[in-house]
Design a protein around this nucleic acid. Structure first.
Lengths: 336, 336
DNA sequence: CTGAAAGCGCTTACAG
DNA sequence: CTGAAAGCGCTTACAG
């Protein structure tokens, strides 16, 4: 390993000078030639500053963590891009993590924070997270921002405008002529589930349409949850003509289960889902979706984090606005 | 931040003793009572050892990196689980990273390694990686293991038995009565692509079946690549009755494009894909797949890493054996 | 303005 | 056996 003192020796200056020159300290009065000599020496020796030493000295790591319930969910892909993009522009390293359950995984997460490995964390709390779980993560000097969730604690939060997204989906169905519209959501206890269901009710209300409780399900966001939701609906009686599904993964399950029961999409029943992912276009029929500004959510979260651990802010990302991606899973309702 | 010396003060011992007791140094002759007092003090103060200090001192980080081309691909989910599982049992932290192109991303990757942030890395080289790209990542004291790829350099490698997986798929089609079998693969330059294509040719040869070059495509593993592959096949003339697709994501595209052209799966054409992911079961029809031991690949990679940077090993994961997951996308070929 | 020196929080060889 | 002290590689307040 080549150390700073090696660079200093080669350039004929003190280690302190190397540190100042390499960190771009402009206040330093030194000849351009010396500066050049140091930079050259560093390059020639292939010098990379030791991370542990630097961070021990400064108590900063220039590293942030992005923790989501399921890092491999395609829905998070755009979010990750946004975070990476903004982090790169701020010269921040990012570590990705997964926390399916905060009470179980709190140990390592708290370790990550408490050991001083990171300067801040962007966390999407998994379903069932309690305020105490979040509180345990608050450490002086480390900033925390919650995404897609709310908190009454002293923590910054950034959420998507789920209501606007769902409204977009509802309005699309209504514009096609649907009035018998159902909602496939997730259990209470999920912050996004609450907002999406509320958004659904509000949009229906605004259109003067009644919400039929037997057409409301709350199984969850996974593909299998979507299948179960369809079975729920089928058991309860006549199906709606259109279904707003709160998550694309669940929509795949909905589509499969509907097919399995011999119904046809969209001629018997229309489907529109929240979140746009590549495979929405690879199902049959391709699924009409509402694309949400997940990338912006990512960049904003990094920005909020960078504003320091002192400030607490609450923001809703409403731009770019949710966008309807029209495919083949929606059409006018069947004539009866 | 509470430091070791705070614990020492509270327990009435020296910092050195705290260090030894907390790290479980059994050679240390100290009364059980003192040991207890130190442990209690540490817990009461909520002491967490400073990561930077420890790692500066020991030049070990107990952290490894897992770098794949696309962390959000569901295909990598199982791999990630395996890595996490084995890392946890060895008390290793893991950081996840993405490298779509090694030549571009080499900077931060090299930084990660060179700065001493990690003890080792598990890397799946993206397509188009050159030996020089990999060589630049070799740093004394940091171990590197390549997965799903080969290398003639001094680097450990672990690969899946792609040939066995593809053979399983081919044999399944043959058992159903197919003789006109095509292959949807990826471009040369992809290590897995080469192995899978070779596996296909070998399996066909073993069965005494001819490989028709017009039924071989090499677009890639993404959904869109699968669509293009189908268009290629359609342009070239009569379709095969069965298709082995080298990656499930591509298979979704294949399925969608086949539907779009009015053909039916499996009655007109059967599809079987490598890699099993939840959404294989949520398409219509659900896709028959070959499940590969990705979790084992993950655990093995961590084990290889832990064996130190000195040893170079090359392994093929052939157990658990590739498993056929029978769904609805395959049937006997159409009678003509 | 700039060099020498202190110190970040640990671990461990060494002396007692 | 165990405490005191050195030192990992940096950055930066301080003295000259």
């Amino acid at each position: 390993m080549v150390r700073m003192r090696d660079v200093a020796a080669r350039a004929g200056v003190s280690p302190g000078a190397v540190s100042r020159i390499l960190s771009g300290d402009t206040a330093l009065r030194v000849s351009a030639e010396t500066r050049e000599r140091v930079v050259t020496a560093a390059r020639e020796l292939n010098y990379i500053p030791n991370y542990a030493a630097k961070s021990l000295r400064t108590s900063r790591t220039r590293t942030i963590a992005l923790i989501v319930p399921d890092i491999t969910s395609a829905v998070f892909a755009e979010l990750t891009r946004g975070v990476e993009e903004e982090a790169a522009s701020r010269d921040l390293a990012i570590v990705l993590g997964r926390a399916e359950r905060l009470d179980e995984d709190r140990g390592w997460l708290r370790g990550l924070v408490g050991e001083g490995r990171i300067d801040g964390a962007i966390l999407q709390p998994p379903d069932g997270t309690t305020p105490a779980d979040v509180e345990a993560l608050i450490v002086p000097g480390t900033s925390l921002v919650l995404i897609n969730s709310v908190s009454d604690g002293p923590v910054s939060t950034i959420v998507l405008d789920d209501g606007a997204g769902i409204a977009k989906a509802v309005e699309h169905l209504i514009a096609l002529g649907h009035t018998r519209i159902g909602f496939v959501g997730s259990p209470v206890g999920s912050a996004t589930g609450i907002r999406r269901q509320a958004g659904f009710r509000a949009a229906m209300h605004d259109a003067g349409l009644a919400v039929r409780e037997t057409w409301m399900t709350d199984r969850g966001y996974a593909g299998e949850d979507g299948r179960e939701a369809v079975r729920d609906l089928l058991e309860r009686g006549p199906m709606p003509s259109g279904l707003v599904v709160a998550n694309l993964n669940a929509a795949l399950g909905v589509l499969a289960e509907i097919h399995a029961h011999g119904l046809r999409v969209p001629s018997d029943i229309s489907i529109v889902a929240l979140h746009d992912v590549w495979y929405a276009d690879a199902t049959w029929p391709p699924i009409t979706t509402v694309r949400m500004p997940l990338r912006r959510l990512g960049t904003s979260a990094v920005t909020a984090l960078s504003n320091g651990s002192g400030t607490v802010s609450h923001a809703t990302i409403d731009s770019p606005a949710p966008e309807l991606i029209l495919r083949k899973s929606t059409s006018a309702p069947p004539t009866r």
